[in-house]
Design a binder for these strands. Structure first.
Lengths: 99, 99
DNA sequence: TAACAAGATAGTTATATCCGTATTTTCAGG
DNA sequence: CCTGAAAATACGGATATAACTATCTTGTTA
């Protein structure tokens, strides 16, 4: 990676580096959701969710389609789901996270 | 992932989400380096590097062994190197990064 | 033990993130 | 056109990151 790529990659990682945003990615792995479904499922406010979705969208981690008054969110790059496997192992092996 | 796991996972991702720290991981993929080698290779100050290494170390992304007056850094979890492949594709496919 | 080299830490200023409340926009139905 | 539901935006205060300069600590060697 060259300098400029690392800058952008850092931004993408920053976009993922938040509990709610990680939650969104995890939920969307299971399939499309509306904004309301997301903030209810992840137990946060509408405003909060809207802000977090914007960040994920900017980095093209999710995409959004409109249908009437609702918006449906889905993962645009399922490749990053690999990260959850790595992370799962890392939590247990290196940060001795207990189940 | 449960709430608490997401919190910690977010911290790990935050630790990676920085150009210099990504650079460190990339360089260390090639093998052990001293702190001096790292900051020379990545073209930043000694102080800067020391602070960034501390963050990587806290999340157990790297480990450090001491030898006299020098410290040798190495990756403690090569699993995360997968992330660079994902990222490479993401930059090109979704963020239309040019070579 | 003095001097040096490698690295860590302190202190600081600028900037960014987080997240709450309040308000606004957008659109479908009546 | 009015209402209500879904979602976005504005704004602000607290907190966290970033990154620089200067100083301190530690271990080696003469």
């Amino acid at each position: 990676m060259v300098q400029e790529e690392r800058n952008i990659a850092a931004d993408v990682l920053k976009a993922m580096a938040h509990p709610v945003r990680l939650g969104v990615i995890e939920v969307l792995a299971d399939g499309e959701r509306t904004v309301t479904e997301l903030y209810e499922e992840l137990n946060c406010s509408q405003s909060m969710m809207s802000q977090q979705l914007k960040i994920l969208c900017q980095q093209k981690l999710i995409s959004i389609r409109k249908d009437g008054t609702q918006k449906y969110c889905s993962l645009s790059n399922r490749d990053f789901l690999k990260l959850f496997d790595c992370m799962h192992l890392h939590l247990r092996k290196f940060l001795n996270f207990k189940d």
